[in-house]
């Protein structure tokens, strides 16, 4: 149909690893992500507000973390995948200068619904786990 292909349910196996995605955490990404998710909490764009909470710089908002996690999965699955659930445990904040590496592995398949569960973890290189959880998607079942 196009240059965009989508994985078929049958092509995916428990244990499959998703390609790692390394993301440079920049002030631009943190502020841009906050604006794009309409999150104007000052701690996500105003360094002095962030410092007042004890952190040294602005930090990534949750909606951006969710966005990056959903992108990580659909980059791999292709655009016809339907996201059903993002279930995240939140960890250390992402700050400018860090690099977050997202990795994932298929942990479960449900034949009746065509749903695939993927354990995903995003770790930054300074403080470790930023987010960890499960993304559930539905994949096309026919050819």
């Amino acid at each position: 149909m196009s240059e965009y292909t989508t994985l078929n349910y049958a092509d995916v196996h428990v244990g499959d690893k998703l390609p790692e995605l390394a993301i440079d955490i920049t002030t631009g990404l943190i502020v841009g992500g906050a604006m794009a998710t309409r999150d104007y909490e000052p701690v996500h764009h105003d360094k002095s507000a962030a410092q007042a909470t004890g952190l040294p710089d602005v930090f990534m908002n949750i909606l951006t973390s969710q966005g990056l996690m959903s992108r990580f999965v659909t980059d791999w699955s292709g655009p016809e995948a339907v996201i059903r659930k993002l279930d995240l445990k939140l960890g250390a904040p992402n700050l400018p200068g860090m690099v977050m590496t997202i990795s994932g592995e298929v942990t479960d398949k449900d034949d009746s619904s065509g749903q695939v569960s993927i354990a995903v973890v995003g770790e930054n290189n300074i403080w470790g786990m930023h987010m960890q959880g499960t993304v559930t998607i539905a994949l096309p079942q026919e050819a």
């Binding site: 909606l63 969710q66 992108r71 655009p79």
Partner: peptide
């Protein structure tokens, strides 16, 4: 901002020919 190139969100031509028939908003939004 997310660096997400998923055509289901932004490519109307692609989306018109996809299973959905139209673009969608990213669920994470």
């Amino acid at each position: 901002a997310m660096g997400d190139t998923n055509p289901a969100y932004t490519d109307e031509t692609w989306a018109a020919n996809s299973r959905r028939g139209k673009t969608i908003a990213p669920p994470a939004m």
